[in-house]
Design a protein around this nucleic acid. Structure first.
Lengths: 343, 343
DNA sequence: TGTCCCGATGTAAACCTTTACATAGCGGGT
DNA sequence: ACCCGCTATGTAAAGGTTTACATCGGGACA
């Protein structure tokens, strides 16, 4: 019973007095074995405590039950909630989740590639448009893959993302409803897909509210706290002040708030500020940041579901799944200060 | 070269004009094969792009190159930084990291047990003293394991933790240096090892400063924000106020700050508050929290190193590795308010 | 020159499954 | 009575590796 070596299918077969083929069938295709035999086998399994050896199985089948999840940085708090969704979905289908992070280092990426080539993972989940494996020739050998947040490899693989445009739209609409007209957009890099989409939501919202183009102040940066602060400085220098700062992400928003506070202003009395992403710290900022919450766990769940489907069907249900994000209203937005009314 | 099916050891052998045994040896025990042969094999490997099939290897060797990391909650931001350390160390030794989270659900734990029994993981990393697998009989079959933060299974397996007592000592010493004498300790459960150790540091510090026992106010709770707030209320009701609140963790500290602010007090002017752990939000609290930083990545690195050693040697270097945490001074501590001087 | 030993290599078994194919038994249709 | 077809089961190969054991060749030593 509690041998030193684990029970094999042969032990089960001997006890159940059948062949190993029958045991295998009783486990994986029960409908193909007579009910009485099935019973004997199940008893034998219970007695021996048999678990099928995953290595042997994977070897025979030519594919493992592991999914490799590669992110630029596992330490990122945004990552972990997505991971929860990924893991739950995988587990409930008998798959395990293997993690890796590239830290934008090509060398590490190659190591993961070896992992894949040695058949250790049946599928791959890739984060944020990174193309971790240098040569495209290598990429051709990639197992079924799904991207998260952004398409990877020229859209050659399906991905699960967020409807950033709709999220941005919700933010602008909130600001407009509060009475703002002169709303600045503080972005990161114009090349990033998220930037484009969020910017599109911003433009669409202002268009449909009839806000003229000359009231739209757009600043770019690199998405860091520092770049948010810098954007504030630039706007003050040019003396073209908005009443609200709509930021491309929460980091930037924090930078903007710090920059504004440094100049002695109160938020939201003097200026309204919004973020995007709802990072864990957003609640703890002063004031608590109004932002867009990413449905992170759901993203993970969908991405994994898509991948598993890819693994069985061979074809993805869709090339793009966009989830709808929610507006989280906290305390960083109010009506425009009368102080700027005359401008 | 870029076949549809990956190259096997046989392909390499054919090209190098040697037997597959020689190829295997050239890879794993190069000193046992003649230099000229080694060269031919290496060339053949380069030509074919061969990677050894991990499944076949694990099957033959009877052990995989995966480490299973089980935590109660992967979504926990504290977890992710540790994961970074774990992953880096594992990867650099050719191991992969498989993750799982139990969510304190026994059913899920059993699923992970299956992973272990089916040989998919050679080792196990366990978080926070959870004993995820119900029956101890099953536990007996566990692969080499290492605990994180607290010993597991009656200390039967080695673990990597933090010298909580020293951390707590650093906090008390800071408070004492600022002039505090009446320092409350807001703990969680008396049964938790972390509580005991942190409490020990608190007592030791006050002892060596000659603070009498009657000035020591100790409250217990469950470590949540709410329990911090409740502790404040209790102290106010009894009207036995300290000048500083030393909390067992950051959550509790936040609760204490909220409770204090709700009564109209200013921190750190009226009361000093300290935490423990340095969660990501600690910087963003108002005021930013003075606390003890856990060397998280380092913990992960050490734990994995210990496990890998266990896997090769069979014996752990030590049963307990305690890392030294650092004091992070922010803005939640100052000298005691003169307001309470007369008490 | 014969013997021994040692280093380098090859042969084949074993690791545990899954599954194509073969076999056996049996009921039913003609 | 014969055959067909169907169901339940068994046999054996294959999947890619590692490694104990066998083999072979050559150098050293007597």
């Amino acid at each position: 019973m509690s041998d030193s070596t684990p029970a094999t299918i042969e032990d089960v077969a001997r006890i159940a007095e059948v062949s190993i083929a029958t045991v295998s069938r009783a486990i994986h295709t029960p409908e193909k074995v007579a009910k009485s035999t099935r019973l004997k086998v199940n008893q034998a399994i219970a007695i021996t405590g048999y678990t099928t050896n995953a290595m042997a199985r994977s070897l025979r089948l030519g594919r493992s039950n592991m999914i490799l999840v590669v992110a630029p940085d596992i330490g990122d708090p945004n990552f972990s909630s997505i991971l929860v969704g990924l893991e739950n979905e995988a587990r409930s289908h008998g798959y395990g989740v293997l993690i890796g992070h590239t830290q934008n280092d090509a060398q590490r990426a190659v190591e993961y590639l070896k992992f894949l080539n040695s058949n250790q993972a049946a599928g791959l989940i890739l984060f944020t448009g990174i193309l971790p494996f240098g040569h495209e020739t290598i990429a051709a050998r990639l197992p079924p893959s799904v991207g998260i947040f952004e398409p990877v490899f020229n859209g050659g693989i399906p991905y699960v993302g967020v409807d950033d445009e709709e999220g941005a739209r919700k933010v602008v609409d909130l600001l407009l409803a509060e009475g703002h007209r002169k709303i600045a957009f503080i972005g990161d890099s114009r090349t990033r897909l998220a930037y484009k989409r969020r910017r599109a939501g911003y433009d669409a919202g202002l268009n449909s509210a009839g806000v003229p183009a000359e009231l739209r102040l757009v600043q770019e940066g690199d998405g860091t706290l520092e770049s948010g602060r810098a954007a504030v400085e630039r706007l003050f220098v040019r003396d073209t002040l908005p009443t609200a700062f709509m930021c491309v992400n929460d980091q930037t928003a924090l930078g903007v708030m710090i920059g504004l506070k440094a100049r002695g202003y109160d938020i939201p009395r003097d200026f309204s500020v919004t973020g995007f992403d709802d990072v864990p710290q957003a609640t703890f900022m002063t004031p608590a940041l109004t932002t867009i919450r990413q449905p992170r766990t759901l993203i993970g769940k969908h991405a994994m579901a898509l991948l598993l489907e890819l693994l069985s069907n061979g074809l993805p249900a869709e090339m793009e799944i966009l989830l709808r994000p929610d507006l989280v209203v906290r305390n960083s937005v109010s009506t425009p200060s009368p102080r700027w009314r005359e401008r």
